[in-house]
Design a protein around this nucleic acid. Structure first.
Length: 484
RNA sequence: GGCCUGAUGGCGGAGCGGUUACGCAGCGGAUUGCAAAUCCGUGUAGCCCGGUUCGACUCCGGGUCAGGCCUCCA
């Protein structure tokens, strides 16, 4: 089984070969914690969570180390802390917790490590010192700047030349910069702002150096996969490469010596427009999970290929909910079928290659979804009494169905969906009181139906409808679900 | 101005140089006391103009349109 990924730096789809299969490393740029995450922030989280799950399946759970940072040093954090008259820790710990809870609601596994800027100051200062020592950075007026002219490959990731960048620059150039494109590694803090000691005076790090220093300190170089949103390619990731490569002792100016594969997810739009505060179309995950199950949001985020743009609409959510209703319905109807369990770890076999093929081909989640429906359909066919079949097929069915169910759950597991009890899914937010009431009404209806008292049976069903409950009669009796 | 995406049926959305993607919705049928759920069947496509080819939605060239980046925004 071969994993292929689209590499932004190489500009093509390539075979993924980890530097060390015993220790596969991945880093994804995480949030700056000063407010709630919006749905666009959730896309890379879910996309790279699928990759994390796939890598764990391929290389083993213990072999994959996934780091997603928490940026807890930032101007916006300072502003918010100042406005509320509290320490920045109050703001950052609050929003880091909310962020993690919101992402957990989307079935995103917790990354192996979540490095924080405030806990990596020594590493950041050390990397800046290394850059100065290697002749790639200079101190000026309390600032330390990266000298872009000193790194020949600068612009390789975003495919732009220094000349282009200068031509396109719209920012006023600070007088202490040697080159307009030189970017800040360290800057002095203004009075009242949080500050940390450094050889260049008290201050705080620039944004880009935080990530490259945390990567070096927490994962070691080079890492295998570096991911993030499309918008981070320039300047953030371009600068990270420059720093990560140039800080290394005796470095060879090879971009791959920092990160071996670069992946970027496409943007999410709201009615074909970028989400932004000025347009007033920001949709918070925190609010959305009150209205839709996290799994619905997750499936909607995976409905398009990760590199393609994704237009976020109400209809997309409704469709995703219906799809999950169907798939959980299949699981509910085949609850009795025991899932086949491989006797030992059977990695890399042919069946599994076909099963995960779509995901192995650059995380093709829409195609994987189609495969899931295919398996669901097989499961129905193998055991649904409404489907005509020959007699010997019926005999094969139990074993075959058990295998299909295993494959269905395996694929769904890598996608991070369909792992809960189907009854729990359909009962959704129903509390115990409501559940008990519904069960009692269903029992009464069962009796009425047995007596062919259709009027009473329908009256009970209407009562259930009034409770927002939908009844599904089946050969094994009636089940129910809470309507949206 | 430079760089980068994308354009597929009513909607969402893949693969593929010739054969049904898949899903949602619709329609017809089966099943059901009636419904729902389920099953079977089914219509609708490839932005425009050229080119390559026996054959292009798929490859090449040129347009058009939409979105993003070039400002510490995923």
């Amino acid at each position: 089984m071969k994993l292929r990924l689209s590499d932004t730096l190489k500009r093509q789809k390539v075979d993924f070969v980890p530097k060390n299969p015993q220790r596969v490393t991945m880093y994804v740029c995480g949030p700056t914690v000063y407010n709630y995450a919006h749905i666009g922030n959730a896309r890379p989280v879910v996309v790279f969570d699928v990759l994390f799950r796939l890598l764990r399946h391929l290389y083993g759970e213990e072999a994959v180390i996934y780091a997603r940072n928490i940026t807890d040093v930032d101007d916006k954090i300072n502003q918010k802390a100042m406005a509320e008259g509290v320490d920045i820790n109050v703001i950052t710990s609050k929003f880091a917790d909310i962020y993690n809870a919101d992402m957990r609601a989307l079935n995103a596994l917790e990354p192996t490590i979540q490095p924080r800027v405030t806990q990596n100051m020594n590493a950041i200062v050390a990397q800046i010192e290394a850059l100065i020592r290697n002749g790639h950075a200079y101190a000026a007026e309390g600032h330390v700047l990266f000298d872009v002219e000193s790194y020949k490959a600068y612009g390789a990731l975003s495919n732009r030349s220094l000349d282009d960048m200068i031509a396109g620059a719209r920012v006023e150039v600070a007088p202490y910069k040697k080159n307009p494109q030189d970017f800040v590694l360290w800057k002095p803090s203004k009075p009242g702002e949080p500050k940390w000691p450094s050889p260049w005076g008290e201050g705080r790090p620039g944004w880009h150096i935080e990530c490259s220093a945390m990567i070096e300190a927490n994962l070691g170089l080079p890492i295998d996969i570096h991911g993030g949103g499309h918008d981070l390619i320039f300047p953030h990731h371009e600068n990270e490469i420059a720093q990560g490569v140039c800080a290394q002792h005796g470095h060879s100016h090879q971009e791959e010596s920092y990160a071996r594969y670069w992946m970027h997810n496409g943007f999410l739009t709201m009615d074909a427009e970028k989400m932004s505060k000025s347009l007033g179309n920001v949709l918070l995950v925190h609010d959305l999970i009150k209205e839709f199950p996290g799994e619905v949001i997750r499936l909607a985020l995976l409905s398009a290929h990760y590199r393609a743009p994704l237009n976020w609409t109400r209809e997309l959510l409704e469709q995703s909910r219906k799809e999950l209703d169907y798939l959980y319905g299949v699981l509910l109807r085949h609850k009795a079928i025991e899932t086949w369990v491989p006797s030992e770890r059977q990695a890399c076999n042919e069946r599994e290659g076909a099963l995960l093929g779509a995901l192995l081909d650059d995380l093709n989640t829409p195609s994987a979804k189609a495969k899931l429906f295919d398996l669901a359909n097989n499961l129905e066919h193998l055991s649904n009494p409404n489907v005509e079949r020959t007699e010997d097929a019926a005999e094969v069915a139990p074993t075959a169905a058990s295998l299909v169910k295993h494959e269905f759950l395996l694929l769904a597991g890598v996608l991070g969906i369909l792992q809960q009890d189907p009854e729990a899914w359909f009962k959704g937010g129903a509390d115990d009181d409501l559940s008990a009431k519904v069960e009692a009404l269903l029992e009464a209806r069962k009796t009425a139906r047995a007596e062919k008292n259709w009027a009473e049976a329908d009256r009970i069903r209407n009562e259930l409808t009034a409770l927002n409950v939908e009844v599904m009669d089946g050969p094994a009796g009636a089940t129910w679900k809470l309507k949206a």
